[in-house]
Nucleic acid binder design. Structure first.
Lengths: 198, 198, 198, 198
DNA sequence: AATGAATGAGTTTTCATTCAT
DNA sequence: TATGAATGAAAACTCATTCAT
């Protein structure tokens, strides 16, 4: 009972606010560092950039995978939630698919380094990869399905493979002016379309 | 007494032969290890597998990039040389393009880990990337051009971007049964084709 | 308003009760953890098991030694108090000595990890060791003395050395089925006995 | 062929000598540090005291257990080899047993810190413990047996338990003037003797 | 009084790279 | 030339201890 709940000072909230602020600082720092030095950047670098000790980083994110996941979660969520919505809104289904992939690519291209993360190798990142795929795949799943059903795209295309392919195409050094992921992805989608019989 | 140029025994040549043999052993070992443990495999692992000391490895290949380049050079060369030949042999040009990309993919998929190497980031690998691109690009260059000229594929496609895209699509954990690079590449090529007016 | 000594509710007592309860919880938790993970177990583990924050642990027991001491104090006391009693009750004195050592061994063997604590090295544990010895030694002192006086055991045996020896013999991995401390201690005591002249 | 084998300079031997010297420096340093700071002393401390880099330590002794073993091996060997010899030389068998235990204690007392090592717990030291026991036990085994057979000591005494007990009794802070391991061990051995029927 | 977040020193371990022989 | 021992800089991870609330 110390600290009347409505009094001017709010000690508990302050503490919690501090903790939350540290968490946020860590996430922001990590986001930056991931782009700068990759997802494998030294823990200390991230902690330093966040202005906290390494211990704090470890307290908040015991494993690197947890940090990576936390950094990208908001966007993954946004992307995941957009799936059903686009399917409902956009017509025809192929358009919904295009728009969703746009979102997906936005996400991947913005946060460089994540694209690599989509590769299911790299030792302990399997779990991370699994998480991303697990969250995104259901969202992505019905989009190609609907397009197939509408006779717009070739059958037998797997949502997973599509995500993976798009993810791969997004891998690009920031400063390679000669490679434009979206161009390639457009071609891929174009290749997916059912061609009207001549 | 060693090294008398005209003596019966050829110590110099022996020494040269030894040097050459070491180089070969290193290349073979590296090729294996790259597949096993990736292009970032510990130097000592490679030297050990080659049965030489690390010093010898450093003498032959002062930087890791040089080693990687040397390991993959034969295949890069083969690929590079196939370009013009296929262009001359195969008809129509789109077929030549397909065949060349087949070769390229063979190469990339076979030597897993190289696909990643194609990314132009990763610090000191820029030079390596530049080398590969520099050697392969000219070969690849005229293939899309010819196909464009023949009205088979969309104009404005850059050979470099195409190589890069194909390279990216080849990135796959060996044991991901749900992702088949060639399928995606087929789609990409299909997307490239000019559609007969309906 | 908190702390009005004569008010109906007893906030002060409540607080005191809380403090006492925390102390007790800490002691119980520590007792368990010491057995589980040794006397060097992480502070946080103990605090966690007690359901309190580390700060609370530090408030109650500023040093690890103080905690260890507090955990084992009851048994040490019991052992200490048993000395004179046994001396008075049991006859002959050698029997009293045996019984006391039985108690001592019970204590040591039960609370594994304490046996190691008896070693007077380990940096900051000297104080702890001193405490245990200081409390137990007087109790143990007169037992051998009486037995010596009764002509039952060899003279010149030091109570301290005996305690130490018995303590050492108790050191055993819990799961070493090939070593039985009590067997060795029996031998030691047997070696102590004055042999009837043949 | 560089370096004529009999020429004044002997490069290979020099190198080997250096390596051996480092190894020796490490063993000496470790022996000292083990006494000073225990068998768990920081790796760096040992390397520093030896005047080499940590890497060198790791090259020679990849695991801590290997280092500990190497430090104590000579004495363990000496002890092990003395068993059969004493059995042959000394008569009666009890005397051989005493002498062997003298050696064993010399060893343990000299290299303080090893006594602790004899405890079969401590995580990764099980292997180490196993090694020591495995080497010493066979040597120790027949000594009690012979004494038993000669009717000098009580039957059913296990060589392992005896070693363990003696080892435990040797545990002592260097600077505890009130505890003399050998005194206790004498008592233990005395307790072992068959008493002449009165 | 209690809490538990934050800190950062301390340790282990791995490897690229150098260099004496 | 070849060797591989030596070096030491990184990097990860753990905890004891402090301290603001």
């Amino acid at each position: 009972m110390p600290g009347a709940e409505h009094s001017g000072s709010e000690p508990v909230d302050n503490r919690r606010a501090d903790v939350a602020r540290n968490q946020r600082k860590l996430l922001e720092a990590a986001a930056v560092v991931f782009v700068t030095s990759g997802v494998d950047a030294p823990v200390r670098e991230i902690a330093a950039k966040a202005g906290v000790g390494v211990g704090t980083l470890y307290r908040h994110f015991p494993t690197r995978a947890e940090l990576v996941e936390a950094v990208f979660r908001p966007q993954v969520e946004a992307c995941a939630e957009a799936g059903p919505r686009l399917l409902a809104e956009a017509d025809p289904p192929l358009l919904a698919l295009r728009r969703w992939i746009d979102l997906f690519v936005d996400f991947l291209v913005t946060k460089q380094g994540l694209a690599n993360t989509l590769q299911p190798d790299s030792g302990s990142f399997v779990a991370l990869h699994a998480h991303f795929v697990g969250r995104l795949l259901p969202a992505a799943e019905r989009l190609p399905g609907a397009a197939v059903a509408a006779g717009e795209v070739l059958p037998d295309i797997q949502a997973y493979a599509l995500m993976r392919g798009v993810g791969n195409l997004c891998i690009a050094g920031d400063e390679d002016p000669n490679y434009e992921p979206r161009l390639m992805i457009d071609l891929l989608l174009r290749g997916l379309e059912v061609r009207p019989a001549s």
